[in-house]
Write a protein that binds this DNA or RNA. Structure first.
Lengths: 156, 156
DNA sequence: CGAAGAACGTCCGAGTCAAGATGTTCTGAT
DNA sequence: ATCAGAACATCTTGACTCGGACGTTCTTCG
């Protein structure tokens, strides 16, 4: 990877799209550094978090749709998490097609630790702004992020 | 691609990282839809825009660093643009290693049209917010996007 | 019942991305 | 002048993404 220019060098053409992607890139990198210490990807942590808060009520497809992950991408992520013993795919007695992902105790443990660490990272970002600014930012991001239509490329 | 859940279904765990990525995803998709009408990717448009505003003063490496693109990714993008006759790689008489990317008249033409169309799309997003909000959002994104350290994965 | 269609998880293949290696050219120090 | 090292563009390689196809299972309707 090349050394990136500090941003001020090219201020003329900053459109929302580029800014958003770049910001997501940066924040994502900070998150990735943190989750790497726990041996999971940010996506893995995201999945674990969802499973921890939402007790095995979701099929793999629903889970992927909720998190904005492609089904095959979620598959390989679940494979990794399962191999690491952090989740289990539990057959649904009611519907034999379904193999509900369930977080294990080990997974819950790790998720809690990683989640706390990430909260710290996130707080560092939040502290760059006032409370009022954060409220605006949050509302704006939710506004932009929300929407019914499925999205093409994920990169989550 | 699966139908995505409307966002409100899972509000508990929205961290900045996820919101940013999702927002970037959505806005990026809107931009991609628009640029597709002109036969280029958003990334292609980004490169053209940079070249149009910055008259062939950058090597490929510098250009990639400025835009946050990996050198190999930029390479293949330049290949496409060159094949489409939108740019040229001009040998630098001063330094035979360098093949400076230059936008062609055709490229400039297309960039202008696509740029106008994208400005329209962007305005639609801006109109969701007040002027004061936009100022906050813009400052916040610049704050987050800025930074010296190179970033791992691009996805731009 | 039985058949048609939908939903689930999985697999496959084309396309994309980026780290590292390579060959050429430039620069700076001896 | 020459040699070592850096910079540039390119190529190679391995991993990842994602749309689409597949087999199984469920549901609905005749």
């Amino acid at each position: 990877m090349e050394e990136q220019q500090p941003i001020p060098a090219c201020m003329e053409k900053w459109d929302i799209n580029w800014l958003l992607h770049r910001a997501a890139q940066r924040v994502g990198a900070a998150f990735a550094d943190e989750t790497a210490k726990f041996g999971v990807s940010p996506r893995g942590q995201l999945v674990l978090q969802a499973l921890a808060n939402d007790e095995g009520q979701r099929t793999q497809l629903k889970l992927g749709a909720m998190l904005g992950l492609d089904k095959t991408t979620l598959m390989s992520e679940l494979d990794k998490l399962e191999r690491a013993g952090l989740i289990l795919r539990v057959p649904d007695p009611k519907d034999r097609r379904v193999r509900t992902p369930m977080i294990t105790d080990k997974g819950r443990e790790l998720q809690k630790q990683a989640g706390d660490a990430l909260a710290e990272v996130e707080r560092a970002f939040r502290d760059r702004f006032t409370r009022e600014e954060m409220a605006v930012i949050r509302r704006a991001l939710i506004n932009l992020a929300d929407g019914e239509a499925p999205v093409h490329g994920s990169c989550l």
